[in-house]
Design a protein around this nucleic acid. Structure first.
Lengths: 162, 162
DNA sequence: GCAACACCCATTGACGCCCATGTTTACCCA
DNA sequence: TGGGTAAACATGGGCGTCAATGGGTGTTGC
């Protein structure tokens, strides 16, 4: 299935268009909708982006929360603010003005892979926010317990049988 | 499935290309993506490299951590900094400039097997850093508790029936 | 009718592919 | 067992292709 990794910075033209990196676009092959779902992160000053299949996973997860609960209400903001942005024939998307303001985009957008999703940053904002993360990971002596290889054998649907 | 073992030093040409040792490349046979995922180690001055299947394992393991937790956030730097480097027809990869600087590469790169992954070192840096490791393991009297053979008997699918 | 949007075409610069060569390793035979 | 030969791997460079970018034009909706 592949994952979003690494980062790449592309330019925004006068029309507000920006090319989604080829390596990211390649992961949209099997999708019904050729484009991305984008919504502002509520943790960092950046945009979150994902394929349609992942957005459906979010919606499904919201349904698992108690109906009318505060959590469900608050987290639904993701779906409410998410925009569906189609690729043009050259693989570009148009960034709506609300998003430009929210993420502080100027002329460049940094695309950052996050595994099943990717983010879009103002380059300087990324350096300020994420730059320390590397040193923090080292000084904190962080380790990662690897999941056994068998644990995700089935397709990306990834139904874990709780 | 085989494991990455031993070490070998190859040269970087003007284009920034370097041949991945044949013995390492052989372990990428069954992979969907013919190339390596590379990211800077946050423990030693070297690059970590692995096949796509292993990178997906990392991504899945990150999803096991609490969403939006500090640990998950800091460890995500691995995925964010991991570059997807395809093999050319001769089995070479191109080392991006950021990585050259991060690992201090000059004209030679030392490939070091690490089991499921391998590392890429500036030869001199490796000697300085890893030279003492052998003695350390001996003087500390390190031991390793072996996993039962049954736990991973079949291919990497490795369904363990606890 | 106007404005926004979607598609089409052109440019350029980086990257992937191809071929050529040197060097080492492995194999074969005397 | 040693030398010779052939195959495989590592290396170097030229060239074509594709991704990113910029702009123009037709089309649709208000």
């Amino acid at each position: 299935m592949g994952v979003f990794t690494g980062s790449q910075t592309n330019k925004v033209d006068k029309k507000g268009r920006v090319s989604v990196p080829r390596t990211f676009r390649a992961l949209f092959e099997g999708e019904k909708f050729s484009g991305v779902y984008v919504f502002p992160s509520f943790k960092v000053p950046a945009l979150e982006a994902c394929p349609e299949s992942f957005m459906e996973r979010i919606v499904d997860s919201l349904e698992d929360l108690p109906l009318f609960s505060d959590d469900q209400d608050d987290l639904s903001i993701i779906v409410e603010s998410a925009q569906r942005l189609p690729f043009d024939p050259e693989g570009r998307i148009v960034i709506p003005d609300e998003f430009r303001a929210a993420a502080g985009f100027k002329t460049d957008i940094k695309f950052v892979g996050r595994g099943r999703t990717f983010q879009m940053w103002h380059p300087a904002a990324y350096d300020a926010e994420r730059g320390p993360a590397f040193d923090r990971a080292r000084t904190r002596g962080l380790t990662l317990k690897l999941r056994r290889p068998s644990d995700r054998q089935m397709g990306d649907a990834g139904r874990e049988e709780e």
